[in-house]
């Protein structure tokens, strides 16, 4: 199963690397969302800085929708989906591979968005020595990003396979995906707030239970994906 997953993930990443859609279209869109938030909330950096964790994760969710659509659009063209079914690969492995490739792309996008947030919103960590060390904050940020991305990728791979090949997929996917991952938005935003703003009555420590929630979400949908992906692939 893991070997199948690695094959599928490598294939998807190779397609992305060659077509450059993620870097040439999805990434600019993500940055655009950050700029639009700036317009909406006035260039007053106070508001932007306070809302940064939430804005960052909303931008990630929007770009995740595009990435998921893209990830399964490549299977629909030239009957790639039938090819996958005929390949004899384990459906659970295909799910893991799809979700893995999606997760890696999302992590790259998040890193780029992180840089965007620092440059555009002037947001850096307000870490004070008495609250937490920079290392602790960095570990929390990283753990949050990893668990949240795993949850988004698992849900995205499930819904992506589900809406792939449908005429209504462009409108259906956000309607299904966004409410389902709302716990990820809440958890990741709260964890980032705890990491970035330990002075406003919160402590870095308070971010960890949210990481637990994100991890639980990722495991739950990962398990469901492993079980249900075969069903979704079969009937296409």
């Amino acid at each position: 199963m893991l070997r199948d997953a690695a094959l599928v993930a490598a294939k998807d990443l190779r397609i992305e690397w060659r077509s450059r859609v993620t870097t040439n279209q999805v990434l600019p869109f993500a940055v655009l969302v950050l700029v639009l938030f700036g317009f909406a909330l006035e260039p007053d950096r106070g508001t932007l800085r306070t809302a940064t964790p939430g804005l960052f994760w909303i931008a990630v969710l929007y770009t995740a929708v595009l990435a998921v659509q893209r990830c399964f659009a490549v299977e629909v063209a030239d009957s790639g989906r039938d090819g996958l079914r005929l390949s004899g690969l384990d459906p659970a492995g295909i799910f893991l591979g799809k979700a893995g490739a999606l997760a890696l792309q999302l992590l790259a996008l998040e890193a780029a968005l992180g840089v965007g947030v620092v440059i555009l919103y002037g947001r850096t960590t307000d870490v004070h020595a008495e609250h937490a060390s920079g290392v602790v904050v960095a570990v929390l940020l990283l753990a949050t990003a990893l668990t949240a991305t795993a949850g988004l990728a698992a849900t995205g791979a499930l819904y992506g396979a589900l809406s792939a090949g449908l005429r209504v997929r462009d409108t259906l996917l956000p309607l299904l995906f966004l409410p389902t991952v709302s716990p990820v938005l809440i958890g990741a935003t709260k964890a980032f707030e705890a990491a970035l703003r330990p002075t406003a009555g919160t402590h870095v420590r308070e971010g960890w239970p949210w990481v637990g929630l994100l991890g639980g979400f990722a495991l739950l949908y990962g398990a469901l994906g492993l079980l249900a992906f075969g069903t979704l692939l079969e009937e296409a």
């Binding site: 499930l158 409410p179 709302s182 716990p183 809440i186 929630l213 979400f217 739950l220 949908y221 469901l224």
Partner: peptide, 15 residues
């Protein structure tokens, strides 16, 4: 439907 029913307690808990 199964994704949604699993999400019900998670959403409730998170919110």
């Amino acid at each position: 439907s199964l994704i949604a029913i699993i999400d019900v307690p998670v959403v409730h808990w998170a919110v």
